[in-house]
């Protein structure tokens, strides 16, 4: 295992990872991605499929997807449009991305608490309804587990699983936000951006040939 600040073996969370998580929780995807890239001296990391996601590039690019967020936009590039100078991200960067997504997930939970606390159904605040409470508790439980795995120095082989857990948790939280989760100016947009980052960078096995249909 790497002895880098992010892949520590101590149960104490690495300060850089926590800092990225906090930045994501407080300021959102773009600010946290900027911190992640800066702290790992990374410019345009290339995912295992050759794609890349970058905060508002300074040069002209052909975006496959552009996600408008507070403070700018996130641009996703197909492999053919990624600059040749792009490189595979370091282990530190990959682990930092999971910290970033955890922070966005926690930000989403905060959004849920604000939203559900201000809404009623049948005259009762949504936050006191048992099903809602249970779902919020499940989400937080998942987040805590992800945090502990990261703090213990998650092995690179576990990162895909952590990405998947965060995506599942975010989807459950988005459902609690109802229609507001699909409005581009709402918290669901950041959850989408977070999923897009996982889609491009989660160290999943690349497709292999081939299984014929029955």
């Amino acid at each position: 295992m790497s002895a880098s600040p992010l892949f520590g073996t101590s149960p104490t969370p690495s300060s850089t990872g926590v800092e990225i998580r906090d930045r994501a929780r407080e300021q959102g995807v773009l600010a946290a991605l900027e911190l992640l890239n800066r702290s790992t001296a990374t410019e345009c990391p290339r995912g295992p499929g050759g794609h890349a996601v970058v905060p508002e590039p300074q040069v002209q690019v052909t975006a496959a997807v552009e996600v408008a967020l507070d403070g700018g936009s996130l641009v996703a590039l197909r492999a053919a449009d990624v600059p040749e100078s792009a490189d595979e991200p370091s282990s530190e960067w990959q682990l930092g991305l999971v910290w970033l997504r955890l922070g966005i997930s926690e930000r989403l939970l905060e959004n849920c608490l604000d939203y559900l606390g201000g809404r009623t159904a049948g005259g009762t605040p949504l936050l006191v309804q048992q099903m809602v409470r249970g779902q919020l508790a499940e989400a937080r439980g998942d987040q805590i587990e992800v945090e502990l795995m990261l703090a213990q120095g998650a092995l690179p082989s576990l990162l895909a699983d952590l990405h998947e857990r965060i995506t599942r948790t975010d989807r459950s939280l988005c459902r609690l936000l109802g229609a507001s989760s699909v409005v581009e100016t709402g918290p669901g947009q950041e959850a989408y951006a977070s999923e897009l980052l996982a889609d491009v960078y989660s160290p999943r096995t690349a497709p292999e040939p081939k299984e014929s249909a029955a």
């Binding site: 794609h51 459902r175 669901g188 096995t205």
Partner: peptide, 26 residues
């Protein structure tokens, strides 16, 4: 997930289906 890393970019129809599915929920 079955179409591997970057599937949302290489298969924009699937990306749309996934976004539409989120909208049906509410």
């Amino acid at each position: 997930a079955l179409l591997g890393p970057g599937a949302r970019l290489d298969h924009p129809d699937l990306d749309r289906y996934a976004r539409d599915a989120r909208a049906v929920e509410f």
